[in-house]
Design a binder for these strands. Structure first.
Lengths: 120, 120
DNA sequence: TTGCTCCTCACGTCACGTGAGGTGGC
DNA sequence: TTGCTCCTCACGTCACGTGAGGTGGC
């Protein structure tokens, strides 16, 4: 499939796909100058996006799925070592606390500005 | 107080303080080339850090506290309009959902890799 | 000829990190 | 003289966004 079709299917921009290629995360074939993406490329992109959702950087993702050829269907999570999982969970929990604090403070401000008697 | 004292007290780097000055967020006095921070500067830095904790960008913070001279002690949240609070809450709630999903998936992976019978 | 999709640079953005090279007072 | 703190550039980082200028097939 073409780069435009890939972008639409996965909800990313052309720039993102070219950027991932530049970082050696995806290696589409070329016909002339145009890029063409096959099954392995799609599998790799899925893993990349999964890794991003889990909060990993592109460098970390590259290390984890670097050797993979995309032919063997493996979930991103399965490539993580226990220590990496623990570390990432720690990181995410910290972020969650910060976000929850921010939400609580904003809600308090909102109530202060327009108090709702029934929502004491 | 000097830039080093400010940095230590607020837990930021010298680079950060200089960067905020570059963005016109703080305006310390100068004696020669050295920066000296007074009460108003500290008040402004407090507001900036509060704004960051609430997830606002430096541009947004600049707009909100731009006119302030730092003499009048106002909390950052008090400068927000109801629409801004609602919008930011929306933004933060979305982030929280993403982070909670990531945490859930990582925990599931952890259990799969080393199942604990009593934690079914 | 027009319109769509694709291409390659290459600078811009965000919030700083990180040296390089130099100054000033104890 | 050494050590500490401060200074000003200015390039680097992260994950792309955003034009600029050009090509190719329906």
């Amino acid at each position: 499939m073409t780069i435009g079709e890939m972008a639409r299917e996965f909800g990313v921009t052309l720039r993102t796909l070219r950027f991932y290629e530049d970082r050696n995360l995806i290696r589409p074939r070329r016909f002339g100058s145009a890029r063409y993406y096959g099954g392995p490329d799609r599998a790799r992109l899925e893993m990349i996006l999964k890794g991003k959702q889990l909060g990993f950087t592109l460098s970390e993702i590259a290390e984890l799925i670097g050797a993979e050829d995309g032919a063997t269907k493996v979930e991103f999570e399965e490539k993580l070592r226990p220590a990496q999982i623990a570390e990432q969970l720690d990181h995410l929990e910290r972020q969650r606390v910060e976000i929850e604090n921010a939400i609580a403070r904003l809600k308090a401000t909102r109530e202060r500005k327009s108090p709702r008697p029934d929502a004491a």
